[in-house]
């Protein structure tokens, strides 16, 4: 097999593993929201275990990238694909961390029923899953427009976060003693979801670098 063909196969395998890692973390975010909505402490607790698999993916992909860099010494688009993958896995791994942290918050959530309607937090969760999936898809499909879409979705995420924040402040203002503890936990859930949006934007920025050779922060 020619060296070029071998490199192409290795890059393809790298992308396949990236998709698997991303699918796992996006499912974790969905599960974390599911656990939250259903007040399922067990499901929330189980996410820490899944997060360990995400860490293994990260290390494995990192090794793949290093091997390609050392053995193939890629340049141009090949080089950008490997360096992009190497940067992206840090953000994808953070998707898993944040989902696991939300699971942990559900596991230790004060009270036995919610002090507020969760519709805006659920909307943030759905948006987070979409941004995580599409950011990685934009890389796999070399789709700069999809990367731009992910970047623009972050405004929606930030808007929802501010709405949830206002709602929780209002709850605490009304009756801090009754609502305070849970409101703070929910505030952290919202913050983690908002951070997932930021990590998805990072992934989208790396996709744009992969396409254009220019890394720009949005």
């Amino acid at each position: 097999m020619s060296a070029r063909k071998q490199l192409e196969e290795e890059l393809e395998d790298l992308k396949t593993e990236l998709v698997e890692m991303c699918r796992l973390t996006a499912d974790m975010i969905a599960s974390a929201i599911d656990a939250l909505v259903r007040f399922d402490r067990g499901l929330g607790h189980s996410l820490a275990e899944t997060d360990r698999r995400v860490d293994e993916y990260e290390m494995d992909i990192e090794k793949r990238c290093m091997r390609i860099l050392i053995r193939r010494q890629p340049v141009a688009k090949d080089f950008r694909e490997v360096s992009t993958a190497l940067k992206m896995i840090t953000d994808i791994e953070r998707f898993g961390d944040q989902a696991s942290d939300i699971g942990d918050l559900v596991y230790t959530m004060p009270g036995d029923r919610y002090v507020k309607n969760l519709s805006h937090i659920t909307a943030m969760g759905e948006l987070a899953v979409r941004m995580a999936r599409e950011s990685v898809n934009s890389f796999i499909r070399n789709d700069e427009r999809l990367a731009d879409e992910v970047i623009s979705l972050d405004d929606e995420m930030d808007g929802l976060f501010l709405t949830v924040q206002d709602e929780l402040i209002e709850l605490i203002r009304r009756d801090g003693k009754a609502n305070g503890e849970q409101a703070i936990a929910l505030m952290m859930v919202a913050k983690y979801l908002e951070r997932i949006g930021d990590h998805a934007v990072n992934v989208a920025e790396w996709t744009k670098y992969n396409e254009t050779g220019v890394h720009q922060k949005f």
């Binding site: 060296a3 340049v75 141009a76 688009k77 080089f79 950008r80 050779g213």
Partner: peptide, 19 residues
């Protein structure tokens, strides 16, 4: 650095990547 990370011409890209 630019020629090898982000070549402007597709012929350069094809040559340096072994295509």
């Amino acid at each position: 650095d630019d020629v090898f990370a982000n070549p402007k011409d597709s012929r350069t890209e094809r040559y340096i990547t072994g295509r």
